[in-house]
Write a protein that binds this DNA or RNA. Structure first.
Lengths: 230, 230
DNA sequence: TCAAAAGTGTTTGTACTACACCCATGC
DNA sequence: GCATGGGTGTAGTACAAACACTTTTGA
C-alpha cells in the first residue's frame, strides 16, 4: 500500500437529504427537529455520517429508513458542501442529495415518523441549522430545472394520474401558471405519458382521463420547454 | 462535542480533476503518468487527498499548482464518486471537479510540467486508471451542456478573439457543425460578446473583427440554443 | 487578379402563444 | 338544467433554419 495513503487526516463525511413530497397541491420538505446540540430544538435536514463500507446511496437509504421509516426512493446526488465552519462540531463535508417521495404511498410513515419529523411547505420553511438553508435552495433549484427534461413528476404522483393533476404539480414546483391546452399538447407530444383508458371516478364533475408514465421514455432525454401563461 | 461525532471511521476524501484545455482547434485533457502502484505507468487524472483544513477549491488549486504549476483557474464541482472498489488502496471517495484553462496563457507550465504530464485530445484518450474514464465522460458531458447557458468559452480563449474562433470552439466541444450566420446572430443577440473595434492582423485573408467577453453577462443566465447544420 | 476566409440579410417553415367553445358529471 | 371542471382546435406570431453574394486581404 502506498505510504502516503494514510498520512492524511480526513474531514468527516456526511450526507444531508432534501426529501421532497407533494400532497394537497403543495410541495413540502421533510425536516427534523434536533434533540441535541448544536441547533438543539432547531430544524434541520435529515442527515448522517458515512460509514466505512457504505455507498452514498446506502447511507441515504439508511437515513431514510431509520429516521423516517421509508426506503427505495428516487434519489439524486446534489452537491458537496465543504465550508470549513459549516458544522460547529468540527470539519464535516456533506454530500447533499435530494429525494422525491409520494407521501400517499407511505402511510406507514405516519406511524413510524417520530414527532420530531415534519413536512413543511417549501414556501413556509423555518430557519434551518447548519448551512441547510443553502442546501435546500440548491435542491429546489435543481428540481425545477430537472423537471423540464426528465419525468420526475412520477415519483411524486400516484401510479395513475390525471392531466390536471400533472399540470398542478408542474405549476406548483415551477411557481407559474400554465395554459391548459398548451401544457397538454407539450406533454403528449413528448410521449411523456400514456392514456390508461380509464377515468378517475368520484368527482362531482366530468371524470378526467387517467394517464400513466411512459416507461419507455425513462432514459431518453426530452425537453419540455414549458412557459408561464401571461 | 457530540459523542457520536468521532465514532465513525471515515473513508478517505480525495479530489480528481478533469482539466480541459483548447489549442490547435482541439479540446484536450491533462493526464498524469503514474510513477507508483496502482496503475503504475498508466494514465490517470490529476488528483489528491483533502487535508483537514482545506476547502475543495483549495485542494484543487494545490493540485494544479504542485503537479502542473498553474493556479486560479475556472473550476466547477462535478460529482462525487463513491464506488467502494474504485481505488484498490482502500475506500476513497472522490469529489471530482473540472477546470478550464487556456494553455497559451500558461507558458510557464511547459517548464514546470514534469514529463509525466501530457495533454491528450479528448477523442484520443488512452485507457484511464481507477474510474477516471467514467469521471472524464461526465465532465465532458457537463461541459457540453454548460457551454449552452454559460459563457464558458472565455476561459479557454484569449482575452480577445474572433467570431470564427469562438465558433470553432463551440463546434469542437459540441462535436457539430454550425451555420456561420446563425451562430453569429445567436451569439450577438445574447449580448454574449462585444466588438473591441480592432481586427486580428497577420492572416493572409480578410482581417476578422476582434471581440471580447461581455463581463456584464457573467452572472445572468442565457440560453444559446445552438443546433447543428444539417 | 485570384484564392481564401470574413462579413452580411432574406425567405421559409416550424413551433409556440393566445384564445373560446363544447362535453360530462352530480346535485 | 345548471354549475363546475375537463376536453379539444385554430389563427397569428415569432423565432430558427437554410441559404448566396459581397468584401477584404496577401500573394
Amino acid at each position: 500500500m502506498n505510504p502516503e495513503f494514510h498520512t492524511y487526516k480526513n474531514p468527516s463525511l456526511a450526507v444531508d437529504l432534501v426529501v421532497f413530497g407533494y400532497h394537497n397541491q403543495s410541495l413540502s420538505v421533510l425536516l427534523l427537529n434536533r434533540k441535541d446540540e448544536p441547533f438543539k430544538n432547531g430544524w434541520t435536514l435529515p442527515g448522517g455520517f458515512l460509514q466505512m463500507e457504505e455507498t452514498l446511496q446506502q447511507v441515504c437509504n439508511r437515513i431514510m429508513h431509520t429516521k423516517i421509516g421509508i426506503e427505495n426512493l428516487y434519489l439524486e446526488q446534489l452537491y458537496s458542501f465543504d465550508e470549513p465552519n459549516r458544522d460547529p462540531r468540527g470539519r464535516v463535508i456533506s454530500i447533499a442529495h435530494y429525494a422525491l417521495i409520494n407521501p400517499e404511498r407511505f402511510e406507514i410513515v405516519a406511524g413510524k415518523m417520530a414527532n420530531d419529523v415534519q413536512w413543511f411547505p417549501v414556501n413556509q420553511l423555518p430557519a434551518l441549522g447548519f448551512d441547510h438553508g443553502l442546501i435546500f435552495d440548491q435542491a429546489l433549484q435543481r428540481l425545477k430545472s430537472k423537471i423540464l427534461y426528465y419525468p420526475v413528476g412520477f415519483e411524486l404522483l400516484d401510479e395513475t394520474f390525471t392531466m390536471p393533476e400533472l399540470q398542478a404539480l408542474y405549476e406548483c414546483i415551477l411557481g407559474i401558471t400554465i395554459d391548459r391546452r398548451n401544457f397538454r399538447r407539450k406533454i403528449l407530444d413528448a410521449e411523456y405519458i400514456l392514456l390508461t383508458g380509464s377515468k378517475r371516478e368520484g368527482s362531482k364533475n366530468r371524470h378526467p382521463d387517467l394517464y400513466k408514465f411512459n416507461k419507455a421514455l425513462k432514459q431518453s432525454n426530452f425537453q419540455l420547454n414549458i412557459s408561464a401563461q401571461q
